[in-house]
Simulated scan of single mutants.
Amino acid sequence: MPNIATLTLNPTIDTAYEVERVFPTHKMRTQKEQYDPGGGGINVARVFVRLGGNARCYYLSGGATGVALDGLLDLHRLVKTRIPIAGPTRVSASLYDRASGQEYRVVPAGPTVSPEEWQDCLDRLAEAQCDFLVASGSLAPGIPDDFYARLAANAAERGIRVVLDSSGEALRTGLNGGNIYLAKPSLGELRQLTGQPLDTEGAIADAAMALVETTGTELIAVTMGHEGALLASRDGTIRLPALPITAQSAVGAGDCFVAGMVYALATGRSRGEAFRHGIAAGSAAVLTPGTDLAHPADIARLLPQVGAI
């Protein structure tokens, strides 16, 4: 059975609500509400376990909201290693307006993490036993930009494949430090990383291949929303279109892509087949409302619809 560890430095309690119509000042009575443990690595673990794998969640947690997050992880029966911090865990909100079909998302910055707290995190992960280590999500305030690079260097020494899904300087320094097996930037994150408009398929492919060559990253998967995704490796690039489905919620789609792709890789599929699994899992995520994430039955149903490689 495949075994991974996930790291979430800035987790969240994800709340999701539905209202008939969004309007100012007056109270909006919700029709549905949902509460789930969230943040990149936690979302990856939720889907990876649904698919049949083993995942241990490493995450920072503090304050009264941290206690609530711990309880939500227990409800989802996820194996967890809590790294205590003083600051309170953040709470994110997703609001679906039925009248317009629009979704509104509010995401706080999160608590400030002290040097002692993030060093404790590095020390604990130095003892992690896994095949893949998925570091996903933003850095909480106070954590240095090169945190993921430090993490990857230690993991690589122990033969662990590191998967990185972040943005900004955390992504840049993580990639430049080497030791990354798979990185999954969105197209927006790739544009920010390169400083280029990347307004053609050829430009996107060239930018992804340049990262493979300059950073030594084995696989770069660029997700592009309704335009599909692109996979770059030393063997070249693969481009697949998005599936024609009606989205219910965009929450966690990228995390589900990572979970599907890593699960396929961990169970012996080829890079191309793993890429197809990632697209199917990301597409399955948008079928579910709120913060529910992808389900195996939907992934299996959608996989035959993903283009052949």
Rank of each mutant, 00 (worst) to 15 (best):
G142V: 08
G228E: 04
E117G: 05
R124Q: 09
I160D: 11
I85C: 12
E157F: 08
A264R: 02
S166C: 15
T200P: 08
L72H: 03
A183P: 05
A229C: 00
T291A: 12
V162F: 11
Y148Q: 02
T8H: 08
A55D: 03
L198N: 01
T194F: 00
G174S: 07
P144C: 14
S136V: 02
L95S: 08
L287D: 03
L72V: 01
H26A: 11
L75D: 13
T267C: 09
R56G: 01
L133V: 02
R124V: 11
A135M: 07
L287A: 07
V162T: 15
Y181G: 14
A280L: 10
R276S: 02
E273T: 09
C121N: 03
T25D: 13
L211N: 01
E189A: 02
C121T: 13
L175V: 14
I238D: 02
R191H: 03
P115L: 11
Y59D: 07
R172M: 06
M1G: 08
I204K: 06
D36V: 12
Y17P: 04
I85S: 08
V19F: 10
R269C: 15
A205G: 04
L69K: 14
G228P: 05
R276L: 10
G228M: 07
A99S: 13
A45P: 00
T246R: 11
T65D: 08
I83Y: 02
Q305L: 13
V19C: 13
G38Q: 12
C256M: 06
Q31M: 09
L72A: 04
A55C: 12
R29A: 14
A93C: 12
D74H: 13
L198Y: 04
V47K: 03
L175I: 14
R98P: 00
S114G: 12
R271A: 11
S138Y: 10
E20I: 11
V113P: 00
G260A: 06
R276P: 06
G62K: 12
D255A: 06
N3K: 10
S92L: 01
S249N: 13
S249C: 14
L265W: 06
A16P: 04
S61R: 06
S283T: 08
L303A: 11
R150G: 03
A250I: 02
P296D: 03
A284Q: 00
E189Y: 07
D120G: 13
D298V: 07
G142D: 03
I279Y: 05
G168I: 09
M209G: 01
T12S: 15
Y17K: 11
G278A: 02
R158C: 01
Y96M: 13
I4W: 06
T215G: 10
D131S: 12
P2W: 04
A155F: 05
A300Q: 15
L9K: 09
I180Y: 01
G110D: 09
L190V: 09
M261E: 06
G142E: 06
R50M: 01
A205S: 10
L293D: 02
S270I: 13
T237A: 07
W118Y: 14
A128E: 08
A149G: 03
D145M: 08
G87F: 15
E227H: 13
P241M: 05
T15K: 15
G260I: 07
H226L: 08
L190E: 12
T65S: 14
E127G: 07
G202D: 14
R82P: 01
Q31C: 05
T8I: 14
M1K: 07
M261P: 00
M261L: 07
I42L: 11
L303M: 04
I220H: 02
S186P: 15
E218D: 15
I160Y: 06
D206C: 10
